[in-house]
Simulated assay, not measured.
Amino acid sequence: MTVENPLGRLDDDDYPAYTMGRAAEMLGTTPGFLRAIGEARLITPLRSQGGHRRYSRYQLKIAARARELVDQGTPVEAACRIVILEDQLEEAKRINEELRRSAAETHPEDPAP
């Protein structure tokens, strides 16, 4: 029988470890800001059994980027859209790189572009 280490979740960027109050404090913002970016569907916090919002480190990174844009004068809705597009671009770059590597392994004689 294997016993799972409960502290192992602390290393998981997707584990919803932070309450709304703590997340807002860490970001130097308000719970209202977190609600606003949730309503804009930038992040969707998990809910505790009691219905309280819980945020992961990954979600806090995204929220921090949105806050940076808002602090520069970008409206919340636009900031959320920008962050989503940036995330999609990074994912597309990652996929392209994987495809290039795969193609190079399959056809090593072809010159790289």
Results as ranks from 00 to 15, higher is better:
M26P: 03
A36V: 06
P45S: 13
L42N: 11
R22Q: 12
G51M: 03
G28P: 15
R47Y: 14
I62G: 00
F33W: 04
E68Q: 05
L34E: 11
Y58F: 11
T29K: 11
G28L: 15
R65T: 02
Y55F: 14
R35C: 05
I62H: 06
E68R: 02
A64D: 15
A40Q: 14
F33R: 06
L60D: 02
L60S: 13
S48I: 00
Y55T: 01
E39L: 07
I37M: 04
P45V: 12
A40C: 04
G38L: 09
G38K: 15
R47S: 13
G51D: 04
E68D: 10
A63G: 12
R53G: 13
A24N: 05
R35M: 09
G51I: 00
L27K: 08
R22P: 05
V70N: 04
R47E: 13
R54I: 00
D71F: 03
D71S: 01
T30W: 05
A63Q: 01
L60P: 08
E39W: 09
L60V: 07
L34T: 14
M26L: 15
R67M: 14
I43M: 00
R47D: 08
R65H: 00
L46Y: 02
M26C: 13
F33I: 03
I37K: 02
R57M: 10
F33Q: 09
G38W: 14
Y58I: 09
A24L: 01
Y55N: 11
Q59S: 00
H52Q: 05
L34D: 13
L60N: 05
G51H: 01
V70F: 00
T29Y: 12
A66E: 06
D71E: 09
L27Q: 09
L34K: 04
G38F: 08
